[in-house]
Nucleic acid binder design. Structure first.
Lengths: 142, 142
DNA sequence: CACCATATTGAGATAATGTCTCATTAAATC
DNA sequence: GATTTAATGAGACATTATCTCAATATGGTG
């Protein structure tokens, strides 16, 4: 979880004024359980305009406070999580998302990129499947 | 490149009738150089209705004939490519896409999934950066 | 070949999501 | 409190995707 100081820092990044509406958006995002879409966020804080919500989401992505997942359908979903965590395991049944601490993907990426003369500046790894508790909950509930 | 027989097979998959419009869509997709969006495809074959184009794209994805890339903006882009190739390297400058033949990602995915008691059924790896020719073309063209 | 049953199509309505404009509001400073 | 201007937000607009249902075309049958 992001702490209050970091939050205050985030609120200032790239802006020259700290404002109420942006504060509401950031606090809501930080307090959110699990992932959310832009529209869900808008609905949950109707007192803040759509434009501001979208603008703030862009900033939060740029600052690495949240990341963007393309889970299934059309709308991207956002997840609180630092810049370093772009490896996720997504449960296709319950929608839960598990961060994967880096365990060699970065090296793999560098190796592949080098082979092709590529200069990598980012990558995304998402694993889809069913999480342990969805597998476990398979009994028929009478 | 997909051959004619495979194409004929694809055209039958999941359908009970072979039709002209669907044929046009599939042939256009197969002949496409690089990746494309659904709307680009629609524009290039205005004689086929949007609904049919979208329906056919869904079928082609299900059959593994094309895959769906989330490269940058909002609209997904499609790429001719078999079911097995979900590892791509995308040039953020020229937009070219390079398939990465599997070199261990699958094993990595299985290992991680097992650690979390996860039952994986798919994954996606996309590497973003600049390709060799974009790096090479950096000289100022007078 | 003509005919039938129905799978498939497509025009256009509708939905979902995201972007933009610009008059208004309000934060920071003096 | 007056001033400057960053930031907001209502709503128009844009883009992408889905849905409906009457019309059409396909494959099978006699």
């Amino acid at each position: 979880m992001i702490d209050r100081n970091a939050l205050a820092t985030v609120l200032q990044m790239g802006f020259s004024r700290a404002t109420g509406p942006r504060n509401i958006v950031v606090e809501t995002v930080v307090a959110w359980e699990g992932h959310f879409s832009a529209e869900e966020l808008c609905r949950s804080i109707p007192q803040v305009g759509r434009a501001t919500v979208y603008r703030t989401l862009v900033s939060l992505q740029e600052e690495g406070v949240i990341c963007r997942l393309m889970i299934d359908g059309r709308a991207p979903r956002y997840l609180l999580g630092g810049t370093q965590h772009h490896h996720h395991m997504v449960c296709t049944q319950c929608g839960s998302v598990q961060d994967i601490a880096d365990c060699g993907v970065d090296d793999f990426v560098d190796t592949v990129a080098e082979r092709f003369g590529y200069e990598p500046d980012g990558h995304r790894l998402e694993i889809y499947g069913r999480c342990a508790s969805c597998i476990g909950g398979e009994r028929v509930t009478s």
